[in-house]
Amino acid sequence: MNKIVNYCQLALRCGKTSTGSDLIPSIQNQKAKLVVYSSACGLNRKKKLKDKCAYYKIECIELNELFFNQITQKNIQSLAITDQKFAEMIMNIEKG
């Protein structure tokens, strides 16, 4: 899981992510290639993210709260990776 956190941190530093109010529009515009959310997200937020990702055929990954909190110091619960290469690297690690 540490590699997923490292790639998410790198994508965040490179500006290849969407968070907050930009997250759902980036999914709808299909700019998001991968959505990563914390296990601490509320049930409504998880359902909304999963449904949007399923509709627009975007991969969605749930990370343990402890790992997700290591990504950034900001108080966020979910983020979208907008770069295809970062998304592919993270999905390869997730699938094993």
Rank of each mutant, 00 (worst) to 15 (best):
C14W: 15
C60P: 07
V35S: 04
E62D: 02
C8P: 04
I71Y: 08
L79W: 02
E59P: 14
L23V: 01
Q73L: 13
T72A: 04
T72I: 05
Q9D: 04
Y55R: 12
I61T: 08
E88N: 12
I90P: 01
I58S: 03
A11F: 05
L23T: 03
Y37G: 01
S26V: 06
I71Q: 05
F68R: 00
T17M: 07
D83H: 03
Q9A: 05
D51P: 03
N75C: 10
T72K: 03
K85M: 12
E59F: 13
C53G: 06
E88W: 09
I71R: 10
M91Q: 14
K85E: 15
Q73E: 14
N75G: 07
V35P: 09
K31H: 12
K48Y: 05
Q84H: 08
L10A: 15
F67D: 15
A54D: 14
Q77G: 11
Q73G: 13
Q77Y: 11
N2P: 01
K85T: 11
C14D: 15
C41Y: 00
A87M: 04
R45M: 13
N29M: 09
I4H: 05
L12C: 08
Y37R: 02
K33A: 05
F68D: 00
K95I: 14
D83A: 06
Y56K: 13
N92A: 10
M1V: 07
T19I: 07
L43F: 01
K47M: 01
S39F: 00
S78R: 04
E88M: 09
G15S: 04
M89W: 15
A80S: 04
L79I: 08
